[in-house]
Design a protein around this nucleic acid. Structure first.
Length: 294
DNA sequence: TTCCAGGAGAGAG
DNA sequence: CTCTCTCATGGA
């Protein structure tokens, strides 16, 4: 057991339940998840995080790693001030205060969001769990059992049938090709990490099965590129409803969000995305009047 | 039964 | 360039 103290402006719940990671399970008020080959159990009590780790790691190295994973080091309140442009955003920021955008391991993020296309969160979680059980490493923490996310080699060597058996559907080919590209060096992940946002996005989009939306998810949820704006069916619907009041193209939405939110567009997007999932009445008259008033 | 899900690619126009 | 159709899967 270990503690990380003075963690301010942070919500473990909203950070881990906002659809950016598919690997966390809540049991009572503690979160169990697999992060880069170890099980972590995290419990938040005010500004203190209580952490248990299946690996016996030196705190000197582990604490900075975890703080970076949870994006605790970043001045998020400053970013939220910059995107707090109207009463609707104010409502979302207030409701989800402390939600942060994770910095997840790159390969797992690439694979996970390849699997996310035309799919829903519970099913994505199931696919990733089955892939990990089948191809990952068995891990335990105080009786809790989980599996590491399979490395590229394991998925590159897997047969199409084995991947299909995990429920990947037609995305199996995309997943296998991406794994093989990482192994062969065609998709050089260590270099991608060094690239600028436009460079990284383009390098990722060269792969079959990674379009603009998935590339933006990877850039935002793994590489820390906050201008990245994943436009899925929800974000499209939200921007059309709140800011356009009509149907709009992806191009229009991207242009609007860039100028309206600036470099923090990724954070703004995440607050809007999760807010509408938390509030089924997100588009009622009372909510829409928040836009009118500003 | 049909519709939908943190979409992308191929093909037509 | 944009629009449309299809892709595998399972829950609602």
């Amino acid at each position: 057991m270990m503690q990380i103290q003075n963690v301010t402006d942070f919500s473990l719940k909203y950070t881990l339940e906002s659809g950016q990671s598919f690997r966390w399970n809540r049991i009572d008020n503690a979160y169990y998840g697999v992060v880069e080959g170890r099980i972590l159990k995290i419990f938040q009590e005010g500004t203190t995080l209580h952490v248990e780790n299946s690996d016996d790691e030196d705190e000197i190295h582990f604490v900075p790693f975890l703080r970076h994973y949870l994006d605790i080091e970043r001045d998020v309140p400053k970013i939220l001030t910059e995107v707090n442009n109207d009463a609707y955003m104010h409502r979302a920021i207030e409701k989800l205060w402390g939600m942060r955008i994770l910095n997840q391991e790159l390969w797992e993020t690439v694979a996970s969001f390849i699997l996310s296309q035309n799919n829903n969160v519970p099913r994505i979680r199931g696919i990733i769990r089955r892939l990990s059980e089948r191809f990952g490493k068995h891990l335990t923490l105080a009786g809790y059992v989980d599996y590491s996310f399979p490395n590229p080699d394991a998925l590159a060597e897997a047969t199409e049938e084995e991947l299909l058996a995990c429920g990947t559907g037609y995305r199996a080919t995309y997943l296998r090709n991406a794994a093989q590209a990482v192994v062969s060096g065609e998709l050089p992940l260590t270099l991608v990490k060094q690239m600028s946002y436009p460079e990284a996005k383009q390098a990722l989009m060269c792969r079959d099965g990674i379009g603009e939306k998935v590339a933006d998810c990877i850039c935002l949820f793994s590489l820390g590129h906050l201008p990245a704006l994943p436009i899925d069916v929800w974000i499209k619907r939200i921007f059309e409803t709140l800011y356009f009041r009509r149907s709009a193209t992806h191009r229009e939405i991207r242009h609007f969000a860039d100028s309206y939110f600036g470099d923090g567009a990724g954070y703004a997007q995440q607050y809007l995305f999760h807010y509408v999932h938390e509030c089924p009445n997100w588009a009622d008259a009372e909510h829409l009047s928040l836009i009118e008033s500003t």
